[in-house]
Amino acid sequence: MTYTALSLTLIFVCIPLLLSKTLKLGLEKDTLIATVRSIVQLLAVGYILKFVFNANSYSYIFLMVALMIIVATLNARKKGAGIKGITWKIALTLVAIEIVTQGVLLGFHIVPATAQYIIPISGMLIGNSMVLSILFLNRFIAEITSHKNEMELILSLGGTPKQAIHRQLISAIKASMIPTIESQKTIGLVQLPGMMSGQIIGGADPIQAVQFQLLIIFALLTTATLSSIMIGFLSYPVLFNERMQIFNTTNTRGNKM
């Protein structure tokens, strides 16, 4: 695609701007910021990827993946700011996901060990895991806040912290995994996944594109399960003290818990 052709696609930005102005939606500023940010961020990533692909050095690949994990961790931790040590818990989870998924993909030679494969696949899996971590933490904190009486009841009857929080933990894990499982049930029927569409538009064989997409959705099932379970089991012990008492849970906005 030429830059002239790309600039013509800005028509798709002008339509919402005009409609927002006409209907007084007040979204012009946000639309413009979003447009400028996506242009700058994606072009920057494009040039960085080009450089890394050409260099084809494992240190650059490692740096790129590390950067993805850091950014994803910093983004997700805001939702669990009240949970002590949430930053390293999320980071550890993302590192584990990267090791497990790349371990299988590269270990069994499913994909070649090149930047062209490792970086985009890592990006998709880490990004998905970040979203799931946010979904999990939102739900987990809401569950704890709304079921504090039930947790206190179990502790009062001689239950352990793990028994007290079991229902809330399972409920939050399930809730954060359901969107991944549900979206996979209708995949290809309602919409074509982004990566697959991109490959097809780029001229790849549709069957080849489907194969890669299947690889990704299978890996996403692992990331969905691992991220919520790991963060959940790493997080719940810090909600109790050594006398098996619940720390003061105040709200769901990440203040002191």
Partner: peptide, 19 residues
């Protein structure tokens, strides 16, 4: 031990929470 204490000293909470 916390769990032993809570079995020795039982409590019926105000709102009678239930599972």
């Amino acid at each position: 031990e916390p769990t032993a204490l809570r079995r020795h000293v039982g409590i019926a909470l105000q709102a009678a929470p239930m599972i």
